[in-house]
């Protein structure tokens, strides 16, 4: 079975972000970028399925701006077999457009399983995997914390409000990966060097016929209101006294 993994390049999760002074967008100039952490978990899971003999080939795909190969290089260095990118000419892609472009890639590659992260840590939308499953008319399992392939089914344990739930999906299917699915392996320097030599196939988004015009317009980006500075208390007794006075106890 072939596995397709979608990866996104996002601002590194340790980097504090700011709005541009005019509030039009997020300041991204000169900010360190990295693979989206949930996508790294998706890549790791695909690699483990290959190591178990379940998967035969792993293809990583990234969409959008010219710089997105960074995330693909990371996936190649982790061990994926092949990478491709869909070039959109720098257009800002929203989840609906991402799902449509991924659908075009799925139709070309015919994978038995698509793995994506549960959300990207920049836009925090958490939609692309479910939208892709809808467009392909495939079953989906979101927020996976365990994944087993049993015959022609994927058995997935999902993290849901109040606990976990296990469901079984007929393949092909889309699975979105949660934090506790696995701990991604470290990329070794020689592998990173080797990954630089692997070709990344470039597809032209125009040839897919997908309309990726944004449906949602970003009007403003701003920092949330800061909380007022609090006080330090000297003892538990003083803390209880302050809480009683503020009326929350």
């Amino acid at each position: 079975m072939k596995i397709l993994v979608a990866v996104k390049r996002v601002v590194d999760h340790n980097v504090p972000v700011r709005a541009k002074p005019d509030g039009s967008d997020v300041e991204l100039d000169g900010v360190r970028m990295n693979i989206n952490p949930f996508d790294e978990i998706a890549v790791e899971e695909a690699l483990r399925l290959k190591e178990k003999g379940v998967a035969t080939e792993i293809v990583a795909v990234s969409l959008g701006s010219a710089a997105s190969p960074e995330a693909l290089r990371h996936a190649l260095a982790m061990g994926v077999d092949r990478a491709l990118t869909v070039e959109t000419g720098g257009a800002f892609l929203q989840p609906l457009a991402v799902a449509k472009l991924l659908k075009a890639v799925v139709e070309r590659e015919q994978p038995g399983l698509v793995l994506v992260g549960k959300q990207a840590i920049d836009n925090d939308a958490g939609q692309a995997g479910q939208m892709l499953a809808a467009m392909l008319d495939w079953p989906q399992a979101t927020f996976a914390s365990e994944l087993q392939i049993e015959g022609s089914e994927a058995v997935v344990t999902r993290e849901v409000d109040g606990g976990v739930e296990t469901i079984a999906l007929a393949l092909p299917a889309v699975v979105t990966c949660d934090l506790r699915l696995n701990a991604p392996r470290f990329v070794k320097l020689p592998n990173l060097m080797m990954a630089k030599k692997k070709p990344i196939e470039v597809l032209d988004a125009a040839e897919t016929g997908v309309d990726f015009t944004p449906r949602v317009k970003r009007l403003k980006v701003a920092a949330p209101e800061q909380r007022k500075a609090g006080i330090k208390v000297a003892s538990v007794a003083e803390l209880v006294e302050k809480l009683r006075a503020s009326g929350v106890l």
Binding site: V11, H13, P16, V17, R18, A19, V26, I121, D122, N123, D124, R218, L219, K220, V221, A222, A223, P224
Partner: peptide, 9 residues
């Protein structure tokens, strides 16, 4: 967005 560090309208 960005873990609540920014608010987008």
């Amino acid at each position: 967005i960005y873990a609540g560090n920014l608010l987008a309208t």
